[in-house]
Design a protein around this nucleic acid. Sequence first.
DNA 1: AACCTAAAGTTCGAAGCTAAACATTACATC
DNA 2: GATGTAATGTTTAGCTTCGAACTTTAGGTT
Lengths: 188, 188
Amino acid sequence: MADNSADRTAAAPGEPPLEEQIAAYQREFQDLDPQVEKVVSALSRLNRRMNVAYSRQTADLGISNAEWEVLKALVLSGAPYRMGPGELAKRLGLTPAAMTHRIDRMVAEGLVTRERDESNRVRVIVEVTPVGREKWLDAMRLASVFEEDLLQDLSSGERHTLGELLTRLLIRVEHAQPDAGGRLTDLD
Amino acid sequence: MADNSADRTAAAPGEPPLEEQIAAYQREFQDLDPQVEKVVSALSRLNRRMNVAYSRQTADLGISNAEWEVLKALVLSGAPYRMGPGELAKRLGLTPAAMTHRIDRMVAEGLVTRERDESNRVRVIVEVTPVGREKWLDAMRLASVFEEDLLQDLSSGERHTLGELLTRLLIRVEHAQPDAGGRLTDLD
DNA sequence: AACCTAAAGTTCGAAGCTAAACATTACATC
DNA sequence: GATGTAATGTTTAGCTTCGAACTTTAGGTT
């Protein structure tokens, strides 16, 4: 039921210190900018650790990370907290097939309901139940404490700087499509 | 063979703009610092996009991301590029069972070899083949171009700042263990 | 030496995902 | 109105992972 897949990484990080890893990269692959690699490696590690933390928290609440993601998409869509499986799948980066199964489970657990859209009978409407909404809130409370702790050592100015820099990277990947060679090219 | 799981996200990002998502969080969950949420959301999205890019690249080379990760761990360990399944599993955050299967596949594809350690016959030694090493190098060449492009809009100073800020976050998660309440506490 | 315990991998069964084939419904065009 | 086509979900088969049970080897204890 709960997605504890990441607990393993939690128990045994097993990775060498970041500096050491950068050095290893330099040793095995010379034409690599250490500054770039540092950013990229830190990003990916950080994300892995965060996911481990989230997994642990949602597991404590008796739901999986996967289920939390669905609840998140539904709740953030605003009242009345409904969405079709197709759009949910797109939002979460899943295949429609996976979404069908996930919704099956969540319906069985009482987190969401599924009904046909009578105005267009091909469509299906997934809606968060009060229980599901409460679970999402519980998870958010835990997550916000963790996130606040994570950024604790950064001043408000540093947080702002970090947010801006990350946003600029994000804009670059989101507003660009890789060309044939995998290179990012601007769209405008 | 190739892990194209993430291509789906690539084709259909489907997520609302970051600003919009932050606003939705504010609407549905008031006690949340928007500055914190911006950093966290950007981090997680950025990572997802990067993984999509890496998946596409490794798929082009005829290997999966999963296999690339194994090659990475082996090569970065330094010559003679060997490691036991157990340590590999720890390094990648997998169960030993998953590692066994992954190595099965990679042996079949000629990326690594597997042999018993004769000095301690419980142990097994996984070693990168020349083909595997070449694949890793190919993947690194693609990855480094992508990463350089990703950071293109940032000045050298900004890259440095970003690296330092991320490293500080990383140190906070890596050198701390969550206490009973999931809060991060210093170890020293 | 015989036994216990720990460590390292593998095997087994269940869960969750993907891709592809398959319904079902809506809608445009004839 | 009949038919072709696109859109939306579901079903099916196969793959990868996990957790847990199991096998083999090493090393300490009596």
